[in-house]
Design a protein around this nucleic acid. Structure first.
Lengths: 190, 190
DNA sequence: CAAGTAAACTAACAAGTGTTAGTTAAATAA
DNA sequence: TTATTTAACTAACACTTGTTAGTTTACTTG
């Protein structure tokens, strides 16, 4: 297990600060202070503030798109695919809850990578929607506009980063199962 | 119907800009340009940038807490209370989707009003959780940790502001009903 | 030991920040 | 008409922003 480089450390600490106040409100001097060095010293390890944001967001977005692609191409049932998607979100969000905050809230501050990010996101959402449509066609899931269903499920999953760190005692598989139940079967007792 | 004051107009336009880039990334010069005037002229109508954020967030937060209090004190069933909560969110979010963005994403940039905002939010969430616990006790809803249920429902509702403006053709009561179905009865076909 | 490198430092810059002071032109009230 | 208010303006302030240049210190490698 290679230990973290100084660059990776900066990116990790930056993500923590970005989670609290957002990309724009965090200054390079804030970041430097959190690292225990002066702002100028950061530039021995990174090229720009913008590059830090790229590093945080793009790797995460790719992880989601790749994971979704695998799920989509598998031949599981629609419901099982949804459960896999929930697990994917729980897994990534628990590994990197700080980065998830930037992915959710600061993607619009990307510059050169903004178009690429948007493509990754729309690929992800298209796969998601296709899975839902297939489920409606096969009668596995209820016939409500797939847009609304996806929106509802996805916003819950996208917000996991807020919630997971507060529940460290929590078993992740258990959380995944609870969410599956709530999101798929609802909360009403038949 | 009184027409909008210049101050209200500034706050409304500010909320639109805040939705796109967040409070910190919007400058007073950005706001002035959007209003067609110079930055200094804004101060004939508002006291500070911070005051604009206060005006946007606090009134909305109070609207939610008040609405929730009424629902909580009513003697409807748990499921009906949840449906009322969903309607409350759809209603407020459709009236002011711009302000909802600030409420969700920029509350941490409040200064003098931060503590008050947090109190409003925790009052709201406590009422919500009580409704869910009562529903579990009476056997109306499934016995899953109320924390997880509330988180799941609430994050969906809190994100409506992203989604509602894209669907102007959409009937709000229909949206409310779809969401009630998805959030309460789930998406699986029995 | 000498040479090179990694990573910190100080100092500074040009641009942008929220905000104030003082002024002017047009609309309204006396 | 005259006086007053409203709402814009220009100019500037003190401070903060991301970033660069050049330097120093300590460790590693030949």
């Amino acid at each position: 297990m290679k230990s973290e480089t100084r660059q990776q450390e900066i990116i990790r600490v930056a993500a923590q600060l970005f989670k609290e106040k957002g990309y724009s409100a965090v200054t390079m001097r804030d970041l430097a202070k959190a690292m225990g060095i002066k702002a100028a010293s950061l530039y021995n390890h990174i090229n720009s503030k913008q590059d830090i944001l790229n590093a945080i967001i793009i790797s995460l977005a790719e992880e989601f798109t790749d994971g979704m692609k695998q799920i989509h191409l598998s031949n599981a049932s629609c419901i099982d695919k949804l459960k896999k998607i929930i697990e994917l979100h729980v897994h990534i969000s628990s590994k990197n809850s700080y980065g998830m905050a930037s992915l959710n809230n600061d993607w619009m501050h990307l510059e050169t990578q903004l178009t690429y990010y948007k493509k990754l996101r729309s690929d992800y959402e298209n796969d998601f929607k296709t899975i839902l449509k297939d489920g409606i066609k096969s009668g596995e899931i209820v016939n409500i506009k797939p847009d609304v269903m996806m929106f509802s499920i996805l916003t819950t999953l996208r917000s996991l980063y807020i919630w997971i760190p507060k529940k460290e005692d929590f078993n992740l598989q258990e959380l995944s199962n609870s969410l599956s139940h709530i999101l798929i079967e609802g909360i009403a007792k038949d």
